[in-house]
Simulated assay, not measured.
Amino acid sequence: MDPDVYARALAGEAIADGEPTAWFERLYSAAADGVAVVPWDKGVPHTLLAGWAQRGGVRGDGRRALVVGAGLGRDAEFLSGLGFAVTAFDISASAIRSARARHAGTRVDYRQADLFDPPGEWHAAFDLVVESMTVQSLPDPPRASAIPLVGRFVAPGGTLLVIATGRDPETDFAGPPWPLTRAEIDAFAVDDLVVDRVEDIREPGATLFGWRAELHRPRG
């Protein structure tokens, strides 16, 4: 079966069961057993993350970074290579086991955790938080509740980078994923987070496109 079709089928079953996040574990477990393919497992960092880092000449210099919904670790390993001290979490225990196995000797701290109930010590603890294509994989509910939770990890003086597929409000799309509207991107700016830049990256006439949003939390 086509990987995207299989993933959507798992998501539909989980949503019907009232467990909208359960399909992640089912997919990663099946992939670990060799009977499925994770459709977003490209083995390289997301191009919008890599482009952001290159454009800004980003260096970690030992600063702490958190990757939300890390999957098999492509973005986490990229940030580690830039010199960040990276923590990467996913709700799927199978994803975390597979990431650790794939990246033997990694410096990334891979953790199984839930965005809705994360370790308390993560609150306002990270200089860089990367949310790449994760929240959009949730139906609504609970997507609207998940979006404002991401920014709570950002330390004073820190940055939140959001990467997502985008859609215009009038465009319907049968997910997963459920591409985000501009209003949903703006909803990441909770508490004192400030939006620095929102990029709408699209080809002329495209129905779907890419969002790359950068926010920061002021010091003090």
Rank of each mutant, 00 (worst) to 15 (best):
T171W: 05
L161H: 05
S137Y: 02
S137A: 15
A125I: 10
R143W: 08
A125P: 06
G151T: 11
A155C: 03
G166S: 11
P141Y: 14
R152G: 12
A144T: 15
L138N: 09
F153K: 09
R143A: 00
D140A: 08
E170H: 08
F126G: 03
P156C: 07
E170N: 02
D172Y: 08
T134H: 06
T171D: 15
V154C: 09
D127F: 05
L138V: 01
R143N: 06
I163T: 02
L128G: 01
F153W: 15
Q136H: 03
R152W: 00
A164C: 13
E131M: 01
G157T: 13
A164F: 03
P141K: 10
V150H: 04
P141V: 13
A146I: 12
G158M: 04
A125R: 03
A144C: 13
T134G: 00
G166C: 04
R167V: 04
T159K: 12
L149D: 02
F153M: 10
S145G: 13
S145H: 11
A144P: 12
V130Q: 01
D172C: 04
A146Q: 15
A125E: 05
D140C: 02
T165H: 15
P141D: 13
A125W: 11
R167W: 02
T171V: 15
A125Q: 10
Q136Y: 06
F126I: 03
P169I: 00
V154R: 06
R167P: 09
A125C: 04
G166V: 08
A146R: 14
L138H: 05
L128R: 03
L138F: 10
G151A: 06
R152E: 05
V150P: 11
A155V: 11
M133I: 12
T171A: 14
V135W: 09
P148T: 04
V135M: 05
D127G: 07
G151V: 11
V135T: 14
G158K: 10
I147T: 10
V162G: 03
D127Y: 04
I163E: 00
D127H: 11
A155E: 10
